[in-house]
Design a protein around this nucleic acid. Structure first.
Length: 432
DNA sequence: TCTGGGGTCCTAGGACCC
DNA sequence: TCTGGGGTCCTAGGACCC
């Protein structure tokens, strides 16, 4: 079905500006108005930039080594990613929105869609400006809010607000759709990436307004069903509802680039155990079992001197599971299959695929006893690990003797800030 | 020297069946 | 000599998102 029945709904999108960089600045007010960047894992690429860093021409996804000169010359403040801090700030951000809006859909770490339909008796621009300023005051995180007839228009309005700071962070596109569509570049539309925008420009389609003039047949043919839905949304016909419920994950992945290259299978097996622990922990938290387990390994794709090798395989588990023991056993078989000697591996990952919820599992009657035993066993192990690890004194791990010490392979984090909000030893201190 | 991690949805095309 | 056709299911890979 292409569109859903609707009665003039109003959607909003709240999106924090440069979220990770803003989090760092929030706890370090001295950084305000300096260029700030946050790096990906392994201190690899830039994944968040303050406005000042953007002005220096630092690109999203740019590797750190390419901007070293700029960093020195302009004293750019560089941070490794501090995900515990960002996750906690994200929680506060969405909780704040919950106070002001009847229905929100948490779309990502720094974005929520909001349902404004029942608030239309208010001046929406005024109301949203008030919310935006409250977030700024409470969290020290700047954000923008876009308002529109559909999610796609709300998204676009949000970008418009970001591009026009003089609007004060809020743009209401209701009744001004044509103006919005004519004044945004095509690549800013939600659902149009590199490939499609290049294709459209070749066809002389430069703005969303140009795009909605095309006929449905042409759009369906070239942009497929997803593209047609997107165009309908741009025309003001909603195809996507606000989804407030917590959707079940279908897959879950744990993967890391290594700080140094790893060659021996013994070392990879040890790291694999660390990954499987994390994976089992995630599945347990999500109350899900994996139907398939997959493993991939790859060498450094940027190293032109060494041959690039990448391989992956998946394997069906005899019965869906979240158990470290079972996941590891199967993942290890795969690893042995795809491992090739004399390769300098730079990244590995494990994937749990086709997840099913624990409650919906149709259990084999004859297997049920074993099942519950395995599950209890795994839960006990995880709880014990958690207990000891939380205590902070020593770190215990599953089958410690077979794990590789973290300092030998762990991703680099040379520029880490403190866990200001989630670790009692690292909370900020106010001097009065 | 140094290049992230975690997701979703869709489709083309192969395998297989009758 | 003529060499079907339609359906389903599965999977790899592409494109997108943050």
């Amino acid at each position: 079905m292409l569109s859903i029945p609707h009665k003039n709904k109003i959607f909003g999108l709240v999106d924090a500006n440069n979220f990770y960089a803003s989090c760092e600045i929030a706890f370090n007010p001295k950084l305000k108005s300096s260029p700030v960047v946050v790096l990906s894992n392994n201190d690899g690429c830039v994944i968040s930039r303050s406005p000042e860093a953007k002005q220096l021409g630092i690109k999203m996804g740019q590797p750190l080594f390419e901007i070293q000169d700029l960093v020195k010359k302009y004293n750019v403040k560089v941070f490794s990613s501090n995900f515990p801090l960002y996750a906690d700030m994200s929680y506060r951000f969405h909780e704040t929105l919950n106070l002001f809006f009847p229905k929100i859909e948490v779309y990502s770490v720094d974005e929520s869609f909001i349902d404004l339909t029942d608030l239309k008796k208010f001046d929406l621009t005024l109301y949203c400006t008030y919310v935006r300023n409250t977030i700024l005051q409470w969290l020290k995180i700047p954000s923008c809010i876009g308002i529109g007839k559909t999610k796609t228009l709300a998204k676009l309005a949000n970008k418009y607000a970001k591009l026009h700071p003089e609007l004060g962070g809020v743009y209401n596109s209701l009744g001004k759709e044509e103006e919005l569509l004519k004044n945004m570049p095509i690549e800013e539309v939600w659902g149009i990436g590199n490939k499609i925008s290049a294709f459209l420009k070749e066809k002389n389609i430069f703005t969303p307004y140009d795009l909605i003039q095309q006929n449905d047949y042409w759009i369906r043919k070239h942009l497929k069903i997803t593209g047609l839905r997107m165009v309908h949304e741009l025309r003001g016909i909603p195809c996507h509802e606000l989804e407030s419920y917590n959707p079940q994950k279908k897959n879950t992945v744990v993967s890391r680039s290594f700080g140094i290259a790893i060659t021996s299978i013994e070392d990879l097996e040890k790291i694999l155990m660390t990954f499987i622990e994390k994976l089992s922990e995630k599945l347990t938290k999500q109350k899900q079992y994996a139907t398939y387990i997959g493993v991939f390994i790859k060498s450094n794709p940027f190293n032109k001197k060494e041959p690039y090798y990448s391989n992956y395989q998946i394997k069906k588990l005899s019965t869906p599971s979240n158990s470290i023991r079972i996941l590891y056993h199967n993942a290890n078989i795969i690893l042995k299959n795809i491992y090739k000697q004399n390769i300098k591996y730079k990244k590995m990952g494990v994937m749990a695929l086709d997840l099913i919820s624990q409650s919906s599992l149709q259990r084999d009657l004859f297997d049920i006893n074993n099942y519950e035993k395995e599950e209890q066993r795994n839960e006990t192990i995880l709880k014990l690990m958690d207990y000891y690890n939380q205590s902070g004194k020593s770190k215990i791990q599953f089958a410690k003797n077979i794990q590789l010490p973290q300092n030998t392979w762990y991703p680099k984090q040379y520029h880490l800030s403190k866990r200001y909000t989630t670790d009692i030893n690292e909370i900020p201190i106010a001097y009065v």
